[in-house]
Amino acid sequence: MSYILKLYITGQTPNSLRAIENLNAICKELVQDYELRVIDILKHPQLAEDDKIIATPTLVKELPPPLRKIIGDLSNTEKVVLGLDLIKK
């Protein structure tokens, strides 16, 4: 199954960097086929508008449905897996 993920960040803050690192680790380990876009709100504020983002980092799982949002630096792998309905390899 193919995953489309968006990670919203606001500049290169420690939270942002941690979230990118954590997410990459989780995906590499658990998801075979995924597409991840990291969006910096400072550069693309209109995209955050469309997804109604107020807190960063926010991970949006667009596909497969249902749409899910996870706010935070994704430091708890178990909760992220649960939140994304990831099927273990």
Partner: peptide, 20 residues
């Protein structure tokens, strides 16, 4: 829509959107 919170976050996004 369900939103889970995992780890630390801030409201910089909100501020950036208001500024924009």
């Amino acid at each position: 829509e369900t939103t889970a919170v995992v780890g630390e976050y801030d409201f910089s996004a909100l501020l950036a959107r208001i500024e924009h």
